[in-house]
Each structure stands twice: as C-alpha cells, then as structure tokens.
Design a protein around this nucleic acid. Structure first.
Lengths: 231, 231
DNA sequence: AAATCGCGTTTCAATAAGTGAAACGCACTC
DNA sequence: GAGTGCGTTTCACTTATTGAAACGCGATTT
C-alpha cells in the first residue's frame, strides 16, 4: 500500500483481509493485526458488518460475512484464469485418472504467503472428498508451493515441474507445475500452479515422470491461450 | 446502509460490489451506479485496485481482482452453511443420481435480487459440465428463486418444495427447497435453497414427488444441524 | 469543419469525516 | 484485592476526503 490511496478504505480492506485470514478474530486481535487503534478498528469493522462483508455472532468474534462469499464466488466464476484452466484440468484427469488442482498465490497479511486452491477436477479413482476450493497450502514443503515460488528445474529430465511428498497429507505424492503469463522478461510471471495429487502407492517413478511432463505441457497450454487472447 | 458507518468505506464497498456485479465496468458507469462524483469514484477505485480487489487492464475497464477471488474462496471454504450442506447434497445425489446445488440470495445493487450458487455435487448420470459456483440465478421463474423467496407450498402433497421448468435451461426440470435457520418466528428465516436439476425426460411425476420430498427433508436436516450446534 | 458530448484525469479550497486518547464497566487471572 | 485485557463510548482536534472546475482527448453529430 505504498501508492496514494484512500487511507480509510485501505484500513478497512486490511481489516477485511485479517478477518478472512483468521476465520474468526476478536476486535482486539483484529486491531493488533492491522496496527489500528481499537476504536478505529471497531468503527471500520462495524461498517464492514453493516455491509455484510463480516459478521459478528453472540460470541463477539468477527467472521467473514455472506457478502464476501457472494462477491467472491461471483468473481471466481468470472475469473479468466479459472476458465482457461478448466480444459487443461480435465485433460489431466483423463490422462492420469488423479485429482487435479489450480492454485494461486495468496497473501496472508503478516503471516507469510500461502497458496490457495481455486479450482479442482476430481480423479476417476477417487473416493469423493470435500471441496478444496478456498483451502490454503503452505509455500514451504509442498509441490504447489515450490511451483508458485518458481523453485522448479528449468532444464533436464524434470524440467517444468516439481515433485513432493506433500506435508499437508502424508502418504500422498504431489506434482506441480507453474503457470506463467507473459511478462517483460522471457520467462514470464508465475500466476498459478497446476497440480496432481495421488496416493503414493499409485505413483511409481515412471508415472511421476509422465504426470510431471503432462503438467508442464498443460501449464504451457494456458500460457499459449493467454498469448493468443492478447494478440 | 442506514446505520452509522464510515461513509468513505461504504462508498468503496459499493463500488466493489458494482464491479463484481457488472463483471466489467467503466469509471463513468461505476460512478453512475454508485451515484458518486467521478473523481471520488476514481480515487476509491484506485485504492481498491492497489489492494488487488479490482483490476484495470489496458482497455480502461475495471474488473474483479484476484484479491476478492482469494478472500472469497477462502471465506467460501470456511462458510458453515456450505459445510453443513455438504452431506445433504451428497445424500441427495446418491438418492436421485442427479446434480444437486446449494444457493443463497444475492443482492445485486439496484438491479433487483438474484440467487447465487455456492456449492454443487455432480450427479452420477451427468456428462461433466462447468462449475456452477458463483453463477447467479433469477429469482423469478425458477425453482431456486421461488424457494429463496419462500414461494413454496407449506401444506399438501407438495409441502416444502417447488418445481419449475427452469427458464435458464430449457428441457430441464428443477426442484428446490428452502433452507431455514432459527429465527424469532416459528417458520425460521430462509437463508439458502437446495435444488436438484435434471433433464425433464428423466423426471416423471413420481420421480419429481420423491425428489421434492427428499429435498424438503434434507433442508430440514440442515435446520436441525444448526439448531443442534446452537444448543 | 465545427460544435457537442462524454470520458478520464488532475487540481485545490473547504469542511466535515475520521481519528485516537481517555474514561469506564466488565470479566478473568493471580 | 490488584492488575490486566477487552469492548464500548465520548469528544476535541486535524487532516483526510470531497467535489467543482478545468483540461485534453476521442467519438459523434450537425
């Protein structure tokens, strides 16, 4: 927030982000997280509450309100990156049989960065499991995190993807590839990651390699789609 | 916005909603929708843009930014209503084989109200189709809309649900039931709708009735879950 | 070609909108 | 009982915010 901006609004948006990141937060904690005087925070949170962006139940704790859910869901459905990734995700599921995901970087206030899942397609083997949209994933120790950080080999047999035993779920192998969009430098800018997650017993070395290469290929297909749309 | 609030923040949130509702909007149109002076709107939109809530491409049009997508997705995954509806949605799919949805009311500025889909479970028959999360549905002429408006028989053979040939998609039958939470009156307050959508050729009268009753029952199970959590 | 219209952007005087320190009551802990 | 932290209210102060006006530009109309 180094650019000229409307200070009051910036403060309110910081509070909104703090509530969403924390999931539930007291007034005092919200004020601390945003380094605001508590009466200022109270006033701004009351405005956010009145507009439905946060809610406050009888326990006095602030939580995200339906308005951010509504607008976020609406924006998610209109998000071009999600649309562009849909066909690649589906192709990946057809080719691998495993569940595949699109994730993007997610700033989380002062608590470092995470990734966040925006879309998924379920694998053909899978027992049904809960929706991953909106879940966050650490940038350290995960394949998705490494892809989002750009910590990916760019030459050799594993070029374009990264493999990890996922720290979030054990006995699971995750493979991820960064999705780039055109930028000033030749490499492009990483805006998302495609990933495949499967139980390790199904992922021998040959399968991992094949999956990884598919991922890298589909990530490039998204870049191509962006470049085509731009010209 | 009749309560004491921070005017500047309220204005910025109105602009954010206008951008999300419109999908793409010029500065002049955003200012008109929110009845703000254009230099005020420019300044507030610049703040929203700086914080990532809206973005402005070379065409000068404002669109939702990644930040609202991120926070919205995060809030969606934490939303208790979505969690509570997950098992009922899955049971409905198992019992009917059709795709099932959770939707909530969605205020859309001065343009009347819509519903918005927050969750779905795909049916077992279905050809894969695109994600419905975030899509809006008119309140008039649809089963979901009627359920969200409470325009549902509360006695008789069709108590608790409503059936419509869906105006959004033809040759489709939609059945919906309102989800209520405890409120001061005995009826409770409608906060969401469960719906089943299927091609009409699969929905004879007996099937419709069975589906409808299941929907009403599952809607009641959510109410029970809420009441249990509150006590 | 000239006039008109609408758009987006910048500037600045005016003011009222927003702020934070202080006070207070309450609950909890030692 | 004393201390601590929380949430809420109050109010004097000031600065953050505002909108009218000006301007350049492109598109449309006369």
């Amino acid at each position: 927030m180094a650019e000229p901006s409307t200070r009051t609004v910036s403060r309110a948006l910081d509070l909104l982000a703090a509530v969403c990141d924390a999931g539930d937060v007291s007034l005092a904690d919200a004020a601390r997280r945003t380094e605001l005087n508590s009466s200022t925070a109270l006033r701004l949170l009351r405005t956010l509450e009145g507009a439905g962006f946060v809610r406050r139940d009888d326990d006095g704790v602030y939580r995200p309100g339906l308005r951010i859910v509504q607008l976020g869901a609406q924006a998610l459905s209109a998000e071009s990156l999600v649309s562009l990734a849909e066909a690649p995700l589906r192709r990946l599921v057809e080719a691998t049989g495993e569940s595949c995901y699109l994730s993007v970087p997610h700033l989380q206030g002062t608590r470092g960065e995470h990734g966040i899942y925006l879309a998924m397609e379920e694998g053909t083997h899978s027992i049904r499991h809960t929706s991953w949209v909106g879940r966050t994933v650490p940038l350290e120790g995960t394949a998705v995190g490494a892809a989002l950080r750009g910590d990916v080999p760019d030459a050799g047999p594993e070029a374009g993807y990264v493999v990890a035993g996922d720290v979030v779920e054990s006995d699971v192998t995750a493979i991820a590839a960064p999705v780039r969009v055109p930028a000033a430098d030749r490499e492009g800018r990483i805006v998302a990651a495609l990933s495949v997650v499967a139980p390790s017993y199904r992922m021998d070395e040959t399968t991992v390699t094949a999956c990884g290469r598919l991922l890298a290929e589909e990530a490039r297909s998204i870049l191509h789609a962006v470049e085509t749309a731009d010209s």
